[in-house]
């Protein structure tokens, strides 16, 4: 009887261990992770070019299914995500940041803010992203903060986001970007301006 009980404990504990470890490694449990993962790291912006394809490993596949469902394969679009500022601190609603960059090696690009649940933050500011069309050609910068900047700068609202990440979409990526992302991409820089009430 005791022998059977030991085997039963082994089955239950093993199953729970396997389930939990799979969900943890895939970033599905606990609800901690975002899309800032992958084997490509360009200036702190993380990506996995296997996203959306059959080549994705099971961990990537599971994480994308949860956090990036219906993502395109790399020939059409690549996605980079960053959840920290230049000092390595997590991005959060209580701070304001300056996001700056230049031309991107793609036909069109955008930067969008998502909360910890991979959703757009629940605000009505109508300032959820910036894109190549709004930023124009050449160098650009935008403020990421919970309140609209007074100087009329491009703005991504973090109001209601808690901790968040930024996703850089690069549609119609240049061949050079797919071949050598570190050489081809100068990613946006995220500089923390201040923290406190109102973020600024």
């Amino acid at each position: 009887m005791r022998g059977a009980l030991r085997y039963l404990v082994g089955v239950v504990a093993g199953s729970l261990l396997g389930l939990g470890s799979a969900l943890w490694l895939a970033g599905l449990w606990p609800a901690r992770s975002n899309m800032a993962f992958g084997d490509i790291d360009v200036g702190g912006w993380r990506s996995d070019f296997a996203t959306g394809s059959e080549a994705a490993d099971p961990y990537t596949r599971a994480r994308v299914a949860r956090h990036g469902l219906l993502a395109l394969a790399k020939t059409e679009a690549v996605y980079f995500t960053r959840a920290t500022d230049e000092s390595g601190a997590p991005l959060r609603e209580g701070c304001s940041y300056r996001l700056s960059g230049g031309q991107m090696p793609a036909g069109w690009w955008s930067v969008t803010l998502y909360d910890a649940a991979s959703m757009l933050p629940a605000n009505t500011d109508g300032a959820l992203s910036i894109d190549a069309w709004r930023a124009g050609g050449g160098a650009w910068s935008a403020i990421v903060a919970p309140e609209r900047p007074a100087d009329g700068s491009l703005w991504i609202s973090s109001r209601g986001s808690g901790t968040f990440d930024l996703t850089l979409r690069l549609y119609m990526p240049d061949a050079a970007l797919l071949a050598d992302p570190n050489a081809a991409l100068s990613p946006p820089v995220i500089k923390r301006l201040s923290c406190g009430e109102g973020g600024r």
Binding site: V11, L17, G18, L19, S21, A22, L23, A26, Y59, R61
Partner: peptide, 13 residues
């Protein structure tokens, strides 16, 4: 336990 852990891990993914 090990067999179940490996199996559950693979099946979950």
């Amino acid at each position: 336990l090990l067999l179940c852990a490996v199996g559950a891990h693979a099946l979950t993914l």
